[in-house]
């Protein structure tokens, strides 16, 4: 069975239509790859670009060693850039769209991969798994174990959310500089761990809650799509979450203790009220 059980929730910016949602997400529970991206709203077809990035990552991530090589990233981005370019009807663009497209599309990206020490979840309860993540921009990853957040990546404090994070672009000349800001992180994981990927409006709220001594993942673990919508709308209304597209991806690590009790899947099942299933490449 799958090592990872993933659920995704999304809500567009208040005042925008669903089709205008500019975040993108993709995951594959079999290959255990997750990605979330936040398209820059002042660029051209950022939605398309964000989607190209997350799908590319889940299909074939770049080589994630301890240091990602700049040349590997440039090469890896080429296929996403081609995909974005191919979806634009260049011949029929009016002058303003042509110029805007020329200036490029921009997006954050966070991607997460896992490696397991054995191929069978039943056998590896004693051996933790290993994860690697890549991030550019302010879309965030949090790793929760028990009642503590043990990883915050790449943003560690709510005050660090700036308005102009470095981004990935369809323009190679821009990426030349922004790739210097690319960060990687790795760690181990155990059954029962919860990985949270969130775009900045929700990530900022999450960090503020943590800094206030709260345990915000407890609310997130029990969400249904309806509860998620109500939670975000309420927080926006109270001014505690910025009005922006919101994407939340939850990944529970599933395994088996030597006593034969399934760990993680139980938590995931309770939280989402449904049986874990094997999802192949799923994206928005």
């Amino acid at each position: 069975m799958s090592r990872l059980h993933v659920r995704v929730f999304e809500l567009p910016k208040e005042g925008n239509r669903r089709e205008e949602y500019e975040d993108a997400w993709a995951y594959d529970e079999e290959t255990c790859r997750l990605a979330v991206a936040d398209g820059a709203s002042d660029a051209f077809e950022s939605r398309l670009w964000a989607r190209a990035l997350v799908r590319s990552f889940v299909r074939e991530p770049p080589p994630l060693e301890d240091r990602v090589r700049w040349e590997d990233m440039v090469r890896w981005l080429e296929s996403s850039i081609e995909e974005w370019r191919a979806r634009i009807d260049w011949e029929r663009l009016p002058w303003y769209a042509e110029e805007k497209a020329r200036r490029g599309a921009f997006s954050t990206l966070i991607g997460l991969t896992f490696a397991w020490s054995s191929s069978n979840a039943a056998q590896d309860a004693i051996f933790p798994g290993h994860w690697r993540a890549l991030a550019i921009g302010d879309t965030c990853l949090f790793q929760v174990r028990g009642d503590a957040v043990i990883v915050r990546f790449p943003v560690e404090q709510a005050a660090d959310f700036g308005t102009a994070p470095p981004l990935l672009s369809t323009r190679p000349d821009y990426n030349r500089r922004s790739l210097e800001a690319l960060q990687t992180r790795s760690g181990e994981c155990r059954p029962g761990d919860l990985f949270i990927l969130a775009t900045d409006a929700l990530a900022a709220w999450f960090l503020e809650e943590l800094e206030a001594g709260e345990q915000p993942w407890q609310r997130l673990e029990k969400l249904t799509p309806g509860r998620f919508t109500r939670m975000v709308e309420h927080l926006r209304w109270k001014g505690r979450m910025r009005n922006d597209d919101v994407t939340l991806m939850l990944g529970w690590v599933v395994g088996q203790r030597k006593e034969g009790i399934l760990v993680g899947a139980d938590a995931a099942q309770k939280a989402t009220n449904c049986t874990p299933r094997r999802d192949r490449h799923v994206c928005n």
């Binding site: 205008e20 002042d42 660029a43 051209f44 077809e45 009016p94 303003y96 805007k100």
Partner: peptide, 16 residues
Amino acid sequence: LFELSIRCTKDQTEGV
């Protein structure tokens, strides 16, 4: 006016 037009363009479908 050129820059304002471009600022208001987000995608192929909606135009400005």
